[in-house]
Amino acid sequence: MIAHPFTWTFWAAVATGLILYGAGVRSALAVAWHWSPGAADGAQLRRERNWEMACLLGRWALAGLTGAALLWLVGVVAVWHGMVPGAMCGTGVLQAMGGHGVRAMAFWAMALLALHGWRVLDRLDSHHPDGLLTPTAARVLLLAAPLLVPAVIHSWLALMHIDPAAPVSCCAAVYDQVLRPTGTGAMGRGGALAAGWLSLAGGGLLAVLAGLQWRCGGKCSGALPAVVAAGWVVVAAPAVKHLWSAYYYQVLSHPCPWCLFLPDHYGAGFAVYGAMAVTLTAGVTLWTADRVRRRHPLLSDAATTLMVRAARRMLLALLLFILLTAGPALAWKLRTGLWL
């Protein structure tokens, strides 16, 4: 365990978020399986009041847990590396955490995406008093639990796995990828270029789809941009790591996604990966709202409004991403006449 006050800060945020989420789950349990809209018996009245409480608790839990996840990210990229011998960025910290660090981040991302999906359903559900989506929303809220539990467990194991006396070789972990072109994290020059072009082309296509969605007032399908967004994130992440980050580092062969978060590089990683996260969550919103719109005509207007907003958000995030990735590359080309 790293003896750093930030570790305790992270756990305080996790505990707060979990308490709120746990209280929300407790209120949502009966709603998920015994919801009987229209009934006026005492049990249903209690369930309705419980659901109102669960929604408020869920929103606050989402905020608390997002804060905890962000603290984890800040800890990995900007704070804990100072306590791990040999670590200069998140790569070294994750190396010291064993495999638990990466797994924790993956589970945190999935849990927050599930909670985001719940929030979309909750917002749509709040537009009609019949509570058309209430049981579904309650189940999605519960669904986040199996993702949150491993996220917390792996976070704990990851922090416990760090041995402040055992040095890591931060750069070696990065350069090994370059020296071993067949390694799992390897991506040759061609692969990096392909990922870069795909990330730009996919981003452009996604921007067009989001723009169309915005322009047609949310009437277009939400599934297509959602699927493209999911695929685009898969391509854009390695493109940032292997290609675009080089223009920040201004050196070749340093495929490290975490150095991008360091103050030396203006913390650009927060904005670049943040834009990707916003695109992904906007995709989840589009997909969820589109399905709700098809199944519940009464919620069509609310879903359409939500889709327009999500499309706008996605478009802005993509513009930011393109600006922060292709922008420095173009600036480098203009300054030196060469691509890296």
């Binding site: 930030f6 308490i19 408020l56 603290l71």
Partner: peptide, 24 residues
């Protein structure tokens, strides 16, 4: 900045959560 984040998370979050839960 890290200090502020820490205090916000260690005191601010539990405080707001306590206010929220007692209100509910």
């Amino acid at each position: 900045v890290v200090m502020l984040l820490q205090i916000a998370a260690v005191v601010g979050l539990p405080f707001l959560a306590a206010v929220f839960l007692t209100t509910l």
